[in-house]
Amino acid sequence: MIAKVCSTFIFMVLMGCSESKYTSMVKKELASGVIHDSLFLGLRLGQTRKDFFEICWNLNREKMVTHSEIFPFVKYPLPKKTTSDPEKDMTMLFYGDFDEGKTIMTGMKLQFYYDAWAIWNKALQADQLLLAVKDSLEKWYPGNDFIRVPLEKDSTELFVKVDGNRRITIKPLDDNRMVKAKIDDLRYVLDKE
């Protein structure tokens, strides 16, 4: 229910920009007929809920993922880059978003944080992490760049990227540790929003 309300809110905000850059991008990308369903770790948009849990169970047995301290998310320590600063190691939490019948995965909720986060370390706060998350998502899911979409009710902005049927949003910061994002399959969510 919360996911549906959040998804509806995001859509209303994005659509409220009349024929905005966002609206034009969605129309163009959906008209292209290009389908992007691959996510990560063998997960795909359109999989069943049973497939989601089975894949996560197998990844857990392989010690690639574990349960998160934030229910119901799955915890995935992102692979470390050999050239990167160990202080910048990141963890991604994820959990599938399912249709009303709870059978088909229509999206994926994501949360990112630096493993070494500390309230006094300004370099590891969410405003700095946001740039790294945006850069990573653009590398993992090539295509269009993120655009900034201002929210009507305040001065915050949403980052949005649409490629074919796949929409990725990075939400405005509401926590100085985490950056939250969402991947949606517009074939499932647009008519529900």
Rank of each mutant, 00 (worst) to 15 (best):
K171C: 01
T106E: 10
K139V: 07
D115T: 07
D115I: 06
D145L: 08
F146A: 02
S136L: 15
I168V: 10
Y188W: 11
L110W: 08
P142H: 05
Y188A: 09
P172R: 02
E138M: 11
G143T: 04
I119K: 15
R148E: 15
I119T: 15
R166I: 03
I147P: 08
M108P: 01
L137D: 02
R148V: 09
K134P: 09
D185R: 01
M178I: 12
L129Y: 04
T156Y: 04
F146M: 00
L151H: 07
N121R: 11
K182H: 14
L110Q: 06
L173D: 05
L158N: 02
L173I: 13
I119S: 15
P150T: 01
T106F: 04
L110E: 10
F159C: 13
D184L: 15
W117Y: 15
G107H: 00
Y141G: 11
A181G: 12
E152Y: 10
F159I: 07
T106K: 09
I183K: 03
K171V: 00
G107W: 00
L186E: 06
M108L: 11
K161N: 11
N121W: 06
K182I: 14
Q128W: 03
L186D: 08
E152H: 08
I170R: 00
S155E: 14
Q128Y: 03
L137V: 04
Y113I: 05
I183L: 05
L129D: 05
L190V: 14
G107E: 00
Q128D: 01
Y114S: 07
M108V: 06
M108I: 08
Y114V: 08
F146W: 04
I147V: 04
R167W: 11
D184G: 05
P150I: 02
K134D: 05
Y114H: 10
Y114L: 06
D191I: 13
I168T: 10
F146L: 01
K109I: 00
V160P: 08
A132H: 14
L186A: 09
